[in-house]
Amino acid sequence: MGEVVQVAAPWVLLAALLLGMAALGVAALDGALAARAACRPASVGAQHPLVETARLLRQRRRTTVAADTLLRHVAVGGFAVAPLLMVAVVPLGEWVLADASVGVVWFNAVDVLVWVLVWLAGWGPNAAWSLTGGYRFLAQAMAYELPLMFALTAPAVAAGSLRVGDVAGGQQGLPYVVWMPVAFLVYCVGVLAFSVRGPLSPAGGPVISSGVLAELSGVDRLLVLAGRAGLLVAGAAFAVPLFLGGGSGPLLPGWLWVLVKTALLTAALVVVRRRLPDVRPERFLALGWTVLLPAALLQLLVVSVVVVVRS
């Protein structure tokens, strides 16, 4: 795979379209799996995103008494934008929207932005359940963020670059996932955590009455739901250049490989998060610091030793 070419700004529209479709796909797969578990036709469940979109477009917006409307809007809007900011640095084959020299750090910064968004979504409505959701998410963030950061650096060390395109290009023939599986797994845990759904969703599980979502209706809810599906997709998409060899692969053109790999990883994450029960942050905290963090560091050590030996 050759150099990554930066495309002009209008291509953002295409990126948004792809991301939106993938987010719909996530919701459809979620719906189908849920329907199958309940012995209902999976095809009916797969319509869930369309039905839900129609429902929320029709539903009236609702705010709460003495809510912090400004912060609430920042959170709702931010949820829709954050996934786009993540995929902007992911090369689609040889094209990328923003060929930032520190793309990996940028991704990291956006995933920290998610903390802010979730907490603000919890704070904004001035409601007990939302507030609790926002705070519990931050507690969980204390557990997943550091391991995620170290997992992000492992491929960058191997490639000797923080530019996402270089990292993708650095794994000709041998995707990094093969020799840094621990970093990949830790990264995936991080993606599950910042996509605010599934096992690592202290901000919005049923047990706290859907927390930060509890007071959202109409288009506000739609944007947040779309945003968190988008975050899962963006996380999976970023894993492609980082761990899965980017656009490299036989027969198909690079951009298609990126899409295929993203779709497969996204689907795998959706399936996994359905199968796991919710993990409470207080449990996850100990796991993050005593298992994930040392594991990620060990992986990083192995990678850097390999890199030093090789050079």
Binding site: A9, A16, Q59, A80, V81, L85, A88, V89, V96, L223
Partner: peptide
């Protein structure tokens, strides 16, 4: 201009969110 790409993402995102709210005004009850 790489950062220009990100700026474009931000602008599109803001426009998209505003658009969603505008559409919702028409479709909601």
């Amino acid at each position: 201009s790489g950062w220009a790409g990100l700026l474009a993402v931000l602008v599109l995102g803001a426009v998209g969110v505003a658009g969603a709210f505008a559409v919702h005004r028409l479709t909601a009850v």
